[in-house]
Amino acid sequence: MIVFVRFNSSHGFPVEVDSDTSIFQLKEVVAKRQGVPADQLRVIFAGKELRNDWTVQNCDLDQQSIVHIVQRPWRKGQEMNATGGDDPRNAAGGCEREPQSLTRVDLSSSVLPGDSVGLAVILHTDSRKDSPPAGSPAGRSIYNSFYVYCKGPCQRVQPGKLRVQCSTCRQATLTLTQGPSCWDDVLIPNRMSGECQSPHCPGTSAEFFFKCGAHPTSDKETSVALHLIATNSRNITCITCTDVRSPVLVFQCNSRHVICLDCFHLYCVTRLNDRQFVHDPQLGYSLPCVAGCPNSLIKELHHFRILGEEQYNRYQQYGAEECVLQMGGVLCPRPGCGAGLLPEPDQRKVTCEGGNGLGCGFAFCRECKEAYHEGECSAVFEASGTTTQAYRVDERAAEQARWEAASKETIKKTTKPCPRCHVPVEKNGGCMHMKCPQPQCRLEWCWNCGCEWNRVCMGDHWFDV
């Protein structure tokens, strides 16, 4: 396979590697080409510095992935760790964990309700045991953590790749202090920090972006993250068709209702045909949960890209028209025109101005929308079919299609509260000796007794199943 190397943020060049090629071997190839010592090179990928003893497969490097290699003399205490030698983080029983690669970060837990604080980093599902597709590297999971809308060759929703760059020099040479644990960490600028490894760059702020994971991409090709779309790892039924499908869209209502993408497309087109989208002054033209839940309008309007190009163009047109109407304007009634106009409040005669090729020149009556006339309008008909009709959803289907309910059931079956801080902690095999993952707590306690870890627990039921 081919990976592209950008040395000291210059133009990239291809390097041929195998899945079992080590990072140090990659350094040696680059060092020979650039005429520099291999031990002064640092390989940066997806916000993480890659260790010498890791392989291309370990690092989730795919065909035509772009890695950054910078030349920086080692500072005291760094060289041993980078070589894969006596790194205290690798000691058996050590409590410190390697910062998780962005290629394996899962933010789907952050669609849980606000009262489930902490689960994004504490609760991990076991539903990723799908067998890898044919042709994928051994052991590589097909679980997708992110979804994007690819405006490039795909023109559809695709699995996405999370990447990070330095907000100062805009190069992907920043190593994160810690990985993101929720969508806010990724979507809110300057929320996460790190250290830029580019020479002479003092940058410390992280800037995240997404790429389409279905095809090789260049540095400049980015895609918009659709953070309401998630892999259906909890096997929730769709609120409309009641099938279990994946991926799904999880509405931001209190129940976190789930809808499959085909039904979401149908829901949007139906509402669009009836012009029953909601115009929100802050958000724009949007839709609420299909069950009509309060405070559930979709905030990231790129989710409506699921409509496809033709329907999305209609959505944008109707949204612009609705904006004009909300501002007190009118639409030209001549067939084939429909231009938005903003006449004076007491102006009865409205002319669709033909300047700049935008208007048709038609003069019409503001009251009856017919060709302009003197005197009273002959008839004014009330528009028919403008009443909002509820999208029919079966109550039982709505009850079963809740992301929140599956989460709470998982928590109930696989977790116990920490005796000190009461945060839910998952036990997935292993011994009875637990350690609270909350940095402010870190209590060592017994899963069996529910009390602080002691010699009695150690001698009596340390390794009970």
Results as ranks from 00 to 15, higher is better:
8 N>V: 00
11 H>C: 05
13 F>A: 03
17 V>S: 01
21 T>Y: 06
28 E>Q: 11
31 A>V: 01
31 A>C: 03
33 R>M: 10
47 G>K: 00
48 K>R: 13
57 Q>G: 13
68 H>R: 01
70 V>S: 02
72 R>C: 14
73 P>F: 05
77 G>Q: 12
77 G>W: 13
77 G>H: 12
78 Q>T: 12
79 E>I: 11
88 P>L: 13
101 S>Q: 11
112 L>Y: 11
115 D>T: 10
116 S>K: 12
117 V>F: 12
121 V>H: 15
122 I>Y: 14
123 L>G: 15
124 H>C: 08
130 D>S: 11
131 S>A: 12
133 P>F: 11
135 G>R: 12
142 I>T: 11
142 I>K: 12
152 G>V: 06
152 G>H: 14
154 C>T: 01
158 Q>S: 08
161 K>D: 04
162 L>D: 01
163 R>Y: 15
165 Q>K: 14
165 Q>T: 13
167 S>W: 04
169 C>M: 00
172 A>R: 09
176 L>K: 02
176 L>G: 02
180 P>K: 00
187 L>F: 06
190 N>M: 08
192 M>P: 02
206 A>E: 02
208 F>D: 00
208 F>Y: 05
208 F>L: 03
211 K>T: 14
221 E>I: 06
227 H>S: 15
228 L>F: 05
237 T>G: 11
239 I>S: 05
241 C>S: 01
243 D>N: 15
247 P>W: 03
251 F>P: 00
252 Q>N: 12
258 V>C: 09
258 V>P: 01
260 C>G: 01
262 D>C: 03
263 C>V: 01
265 H>F: 14
268 C>E: 01
270 T>N: 04
272 L>A: 02
274 D>T: 04
275 R>M: 03
275 R>S: 01
278 V>F: 08
278 V>W: 07
280 D>T: 11
281 P>I: 07
289 C>H: 00
291 A>E: 03
291 A>Q: 06
292 G>M: 06
303 H>I: 09
304 F>E: 01
305 R>K: 12
309 E>W: 07
311 Q>S: 05
320 A>S: 12
322 E>N: 05
323 C>H: 15
324 V>H: 06
324 V>P: 03
325 L>S: 04
327 M>Q: 14
329 G>I: 03
329 G>Q: 03
331 L>E: 03
332 C>Q: 03
333 P>T: 03
334 R>Y: 06
335 P>R: 06
346 D>I: 10
352 C>N: 02
352 C>Y: 02
359 G>C: 10
362 F>H: 07
363 A>P: 06
366 R>L: 09
367 E>P: 04
370 E>L: 07
381 F>H: 07
385 G>C: 07
386 T>W: 12
388 T>C: 09
397 A>N: 13
400 Q>S: 15
405 A>C: 12
407 S>W: 07
407 S>L: 08
408 K>V: 12
411 I>P: 08
414 T>L: 09
423 V>C: 14
439 P>L: 10
439 P>A: 13
444 E>C: 06
445 W>Y: 15
447 W>E: 09
449 C>V: 01
452 E>V: 15
454 N>T: 15
457 C>Q: 00
461 H>S: 00
462 W>S: 15
465 V>A: 15
